[in-house]
């Protein structure tokens, strides 16, 4: 399974089905937390995750599709859009240099 240390992450991809709704909101919240650190947070449809993505967040129902689109990326699933513990885990990993894995 892919792993990544938070200190190596410069860009976080938030993916959802259409890249139109929920991923926009999640990316917005995450961006406000990580802006000070200079981390880029972008949203995208799950089928269009860019090559070279290291860290992808997506709803648990889409995690398998995200992983097949980006086999080398760490995919962190979440189940609720506001306040999911996964967001805190990703923030902590990036801010404190902890390891994340799919």
């Amino acid at each position: 399974m892919p792993t990544v240390n938070g200190s190596e992450v410069t860009k976080v991809i938030v993916a959802c089905d259409a890249g139109m709704g929920s991923s926009v909101m999640v990316a917005s919240n995450l961006r406000s937390k990580l802006r000070a650190k200079g981390i880029d947070v972008v949203h995208t449809p799950v089928n269009e995750i860019p090559e070279g993505a290291k860290l992808v967040l997506c709803h648990q129902g889409l995690a398998a599709r995200a992983q097949s689109t980006a086999p080398n990326a760490v995919v962190v699933p979440f189940s609720i859009f506001i306040g999911d513990p996964a967001f805190t885990r990703v923030e902590d990993a990036i801010l404190q240099g902890k390891t994340l894995e799919s």
């Binding site: 089905d17 259409a18 709704g21 929920s22 129902g61 859009f81 506001i82």
Partner: peptide, 10 residues
């Protein structure tokens, strides 16, 4: 769209 993942956001 709703049949894949609900758009309920909280």
């Amino acid at each position: 769209r709703e049949t894949s993942v609900s758009t309920y956001v909280g």
